[in-house]
């Protein structure tokens, strides 16, 4: 399975915070799984995830192969406003990257 597209939804909650739910397509291989031929599948996993709000970093995460395949994260911002631009991006141990942008709804 190759790395692929992302999905994201950023929603302003009535309680006054913004929830960012983001899905990533990535195998997150641990290096311990064997393929059909009994050979170990090499490690392949996302290492860094960054959340930016209107261009400014809000969350910087370092993650390991211990995060589940096709990672799903929810992050939370203080306040926020409809239309704020949210950008989430990742880079893996092969240097592959992906990102997605959407306004707070």
């Amino acid at each position: 399975m190759a790395a692929g597209p992302m999905k994201m939804r950023a929603t302003l909650a009535p309680a006054g915070y913004t929830d960012i739910r983001v899905l990533m397509t990535h195998p997150m291989e641990t290096g311990q799984r064997k393929d059909a031929d009994g050979k170990l599948v090499p490690m392949h996993f996302i290492q860094n995830v960054t959340v930016k709000v209107n261009g400014k970093p809000a969350v910087e995460a370092q993650i390991s192969q211990g995060v589940s395949r096709n990672p799903v994260f929810t992050f939370r911002l203080k306040g926020g406003a409809r239309g704020d631009n949210i950008e989430v991006s990742w880079i893996d141990n092969h240097g592959e990257t992906a990102s997605i942008e959407a306004p707070v709804a």
Binding site: P57, A58, V59, T74
Partner: peptide, 18 residues
């Protein structure tokens, strides 16, 4: 995982782990 929360982020995260 290690999450650094900068300006504007609440110390909150939901994640699926192995």
């Amino acid at each position: 995982a290690k999450f650094d929360f900068l300006e504007g982020a609440l110390p909150f995260v939901k994640v699926n782990v192995k």
